Computed example of a mutant assay.
Amino acid sequence: MAIRAVVFDIGGVLEITGPMDFTRTWETRLGLAPGEIRGRLADMWAAGAVGGVTEAALLEATVERLGLTAAEVELMMADFWVQYLGVGNTELIGYVRQLRPRFRTGILSNSFVGAREREQAAYGLESLVDDLVYSHEVGVSKPEARIYELTCARHGVAPGELLFVDDLEVNVAAARSLGIHALQFRDNAQVIAGIEEIVSGAPG
């Protein structure tokens, strides 16, 4: 079955990101124990990943639960977004751009409320690909089967016609279990060569 669509994760693939450790700085600043910020806000962070809370509600809860001012929360969230967005993987973004019109292209991302707008402003992802599936917009996240099935449906392809690239082994394994071709991202050269091998039908 020929590949008709190629879909990419964002963080760790199209964006080069490091650890999300902004909370350590803020816990030190606020005199909190390690892990306390995430502990107090765990339900809100989880809801933000699947669209169960608005940005405004998240900010309000952070003010209340951490005893901060709105201005302090805005500063903390600015640190969050700097780490979340990382820097653009310009070589791979350029490669993705030239895949069309040979293939449909897309994004499948475990995301957080507010991510689409910020990633669009930073990297112009909406013009890069044909379709974007964000977990916070569709209410389900990787590695759940439903988000892969939704991605196939939105591209109008069968699982065997989709190639998916992600940096996490668990997400790659979940895609493969559904019959999707999947590659784990390690570096640009490796993943570009892997894509070209799969789409050409070469044995690997």
Results as ranks from 00 to 15, higher is better:
Glu27Tyr: 09
Pro143Met: 10
Val138Ala: 07
Val73Gly: 09
Leu162Val: 04
Leu132Cys: 14
Val199His: 08
Glu72Gln: 15
Pro101Gly: 11
Ala56Arg: 15
Ala47Lys: 14
Val96Glu: 04
Thr69Cys: 09
Gly48Thr: 01
Gly124Gln: 07
Leu30Tyr: 08
Gln98Cys: 11
Pro101Ser: 10
Val133Glu: 03
Arg118Ala: 10
Ser135Pro: 09
Ala61Leu: 10
Ala5Asp: 05
Val6Cys: 08
Arg116Ile: 03
Glu161Ile: 11
Leu162Lys: 05
His136Thr: 01
Glu64Trp: 12
Gly31Lys: 13
Phe164Glu: 01
Asp9Lys: 04
Met76Phe: 02
Asp43Lys: 15
Asp187Val: 07
Lys142His: 09
Gly156His: 12
Met76His: 02
Ser200Val: 05
Glu197Trp: 11
Val140Pro: 04
Glu55Asp: 12
Leu132Phe: 02
Leu85Phe: 11
Ala175Lys: 01
Ala153Ser: 14
Glu72Trp: 02
Glu149Lys: 13
Gly139Val: 09
Pro19Gly: 05
Gly156Lys: 11
Cys152Pro: 02
Pro101Phe: 13
Phe185Met: 06
Tyr95Glu: 08
Asp131Phe: 13
Cys152Glu: 03
Val82Thr: 15
Met76Lys: 06
Gln98Phe: 10
Glu119Ile: 12
Glu196Ile: 04
Asp167Cys: 11
Arg176Tyr: 11
Asn110Cys: 07
Gly106Thr: 01
Ser127Asp: 15
Ser177Gln: 14
Ser200Thr: 13
Gln190Lys: 10
Ala46Gln: 13
Leu132Thr: 01
Ala33Asp: 10
Ala173Tyr: 04
Phe80Ala: 00
Ala56Gly: 10
Gly156Val: 09
Ala49Ile: 08
Val172Tyr: 04
Glu64Leu: 15
Ile192Lys: 14
Ala5His: 03
Pro143Thr: 12
Gly51Trp: 02
Phe164Leu: 12
Thr105Val: 06
Val113Leu: 05
Leu150Asn: 01
Thr25Trp: 12
Phe185Trp: 07
Gln184Ala: 10
Ile3Gln: 02
Phe185Ser: 00
His155Ala: 00
Val138Thr: 09
Leu168Thr: 00
Glu60Gln: 14
Leu125Asp: 02
Gly35Met: 12
Ala189His: 13
Ala49His: 10
Ala193Cys: 10
Ser177Met: 08
Arg102Lys: 12
Phe103Arg: 02
Leu66Thr: 06
Thr25Met: 12
Val6Leu: 09
Val53Leu: 13
Val7Lys: 01
